[in-house]
Amino acid sequence: MRGSTLECAMSTRRRQPPRRAALAAAALIVLLTLWAIAGPAASPYSPNALDWQHLLAAPSLTDGHWLGTDPLGRDLYVRTLYGLRLSLLLGVLATGVSVLIGVLWGMVAGFAGGRVDAWMMRVVDILYSLPYLFIVLILATLFGRDSITLLLLAIGSVGWLTLARVVRARTLSLKRREFIEAARAAGLTPAAIMLRHILPNLAGTVVVYATLMVPQMITSESFLSFLGLGVQPPRASLGSLVSEGAHEMLAAPWMLLVPATVLVVLLLSFNLLGDALRDVLEPTAR
């Protein structure tokens, strides 16, 4: 039913708008990233400086606190951008960790086949049957309270399961192709075949899933920080800012609205971009 002409015609006809949305999403991500890097410099305030003259001040153009302040008089514009910075950085790095584990795991399992494959995938199945954030939460609570690196590892070490499955399936089909046979006949070691011939052919798949993984990682980090288990004060991430905002929402709704909006726009952009990339690079995945 997928291959019917009607379906094809429909899907090509429908392809145009999502692509425009994806371009907009990509532009937004770039914009937000640049803003996170350069934006704080535009404000006279630093993220942890206390301004006793303006406690819980509403957003205003005159006093320099463009997006208001929190109960300690810290500038929300600068803090949100610092939070965005940290959330983006943690999201991307944790995705890196996940991609590394997932690609290696899936590729080795798929390439080795047989009993090794069965055992490796059994591990994935078991981890898969448990709630992902739940494991992250336990790991982060137990190990990651004081160190950002450990927090990063806790978040990144659980998200690789889907990728490992996809990469394994891809490797299984690649492995039967003639160029792999040729490489084997030429006397390449399995490691060399994987690195030089399988890995480059996985690139498209990996890019798609990595893009979809970034928002997931950002959500995990924000989730932990919201519960007070992730990034610790005085550092701020979008999650901890939303949490602070939720406590002050009656007196200072902007404290909730500003970081929440930034977070949602960021997540939505990454999701849109990832979905669009998947439609283009992985047409069979849906």
């Binding site: 919201f226 939720a246 909730l256 929440a260 977070l263 949602v264």
Partner: peptide
Amino acid sequence: AAVSLALPSFVTGPFLALAFGL
């Protein structure tokens, strides 16, 4: 669907509490 999937519940929760509660 796209928007609700991008909204973490720790954002929707406080929003709804703010709007319908406060």
